[in-house]
Design a protein around this nucleic acid. Structure first.
Lengths: 205, 205
DNA sequence: GTCTATATGCCGATAGAC
DNA sequence: GTCTATCGGCATATAGAC
């Protein structure tokens, strides 16, 4: 959409910048209070304008969360694809996939939180059907990585792949609930500890 | 509250049973659609009555979720206490604490889901301050168990206890998102696999 | 214990002036 | 691009009849 202005003036600060600014404000509120819980008046207040003025930039509150989620997902899955297409060994690919998830939490925590909290409900509407598709796509990525790990002998052979996938997916993304950028731990610190536990467990050898 | 009728006729089916029935209906809706997203009309419809009639049983929608959460938490923490006070060794206590959590998900999944999804927001109100207290209490339990594990040599000495606590807490409770009682896997199956991964990791030895 | 009827307020969204 | 003003709808909750 609007491919024209984007390709012609990629670095021009203008109406597009105001949109992004408003979307960032909305994303923070959606992440903190929930989508339904956030009113268009909340968003307008935080932006220093009146609620009616928002409708100059966006069709509806729904189209705001739509734009937030779809653009984030596009970026995230491009990163997964890069891991899948690399020629690293199975274990390294798993480590990279975990690390890029924590990096996504670091760089886009509002978007991750919104997806975690709202995807199930929003996904019931046709407009957000792509959320379920992306979910299935994410599962494909992880099942592939774990299958490779099993076949190459990097992973223990008694693992239930489906359950292991859920374990990793949940464990990684749920960190968005407490991780804060600029805190004591960097996303790399967190990824290091998580990978240690995930790969080798907490029990003394 | 109403200690009289409860102590005098503990097994009397009456108005208290209707309350419990309505609370169970509300809990399912709160868990599936979110607290704010669920209207009193939704609850009344599901119960086959009109919305106004709910107010014969409850002060407000808030008091419904309050009763759901507080009675569940009381039961859960009694179970934690039993583990803490037992004379099992450190590793066994950790295993028992994990297992009882999956059992709670099996037996009270609506309540667990509501707590996971709504505690942060509700906790901002004075009325729900006990949610934050219970959260702190849960942390105490786990830090104690993990500390014992470290001191007794059951756990590897390089663990970051705080991060390990978050890892376990998140990993266990987030399963409420996909676990369904009566499905292919029992809560014991899930706990077995989770403990295997948690204790020994997914990497081939 | 449930129903009828309704008060009261906040919500998302729109129309048109500036 | 923002403001003024406002509509129609749905939310929680209440009062009183049955």
């Amino acid at each position: 959409m609007s491919a024209q202005s984007r390709t012609e003036r990629p670095d021009r600060p203008e109406s597009t910048d105001r949109r992004r600014e408003l979307l960032a404000i909305a994303a923070e509120l959606f992440a903190d209070k929930g989508f339904r819980n956030t009113t268009v008046r909340d968003i307008a207040d935080a932006a220093g304008i009146l609620s009616g003025s928002l409708y100059h930039h966006f069709d509806s509150k729904e189209s705001m969360v739509d734009e937030i989620l779809s653009s984030f997902q596009a970026e995230l899955f491009a990163a997964y694809d890069a891991v899948l297409l690399s020629d690293d060994d199975a274990r390294t690919k798993i480590e990279r996939a975990v690390r890029l998830s924590f990096e996504a939490i670091d760089r886009h925590r509002h978007e991750v939180a919104i997806f975690q909290n709202e995807a199930d409900l929003l996904g019931q509407q046709e407009r957000f059907a792509y959320l379920a598709e992306r979910n299935a796509q994410s599962r494909e990525v992880w099942i592939t990585l774990l299958d490779d790990g099993l076949r190459s002998g990097a992973l223990r052979p008694d693992l239930d792949i489906e359950l292991t996938y859920r374990f990793i997916r949940d464990t990684v993304w749920v960190a968005v609930r407490w991780y804060r950028p600029g805190g004591k731990l960097t996303h790399t610190d967190v990824a290091d500890q998580y990978l240690t536990i995930l790969l080798d467990g907490i029990a003394h050898a």
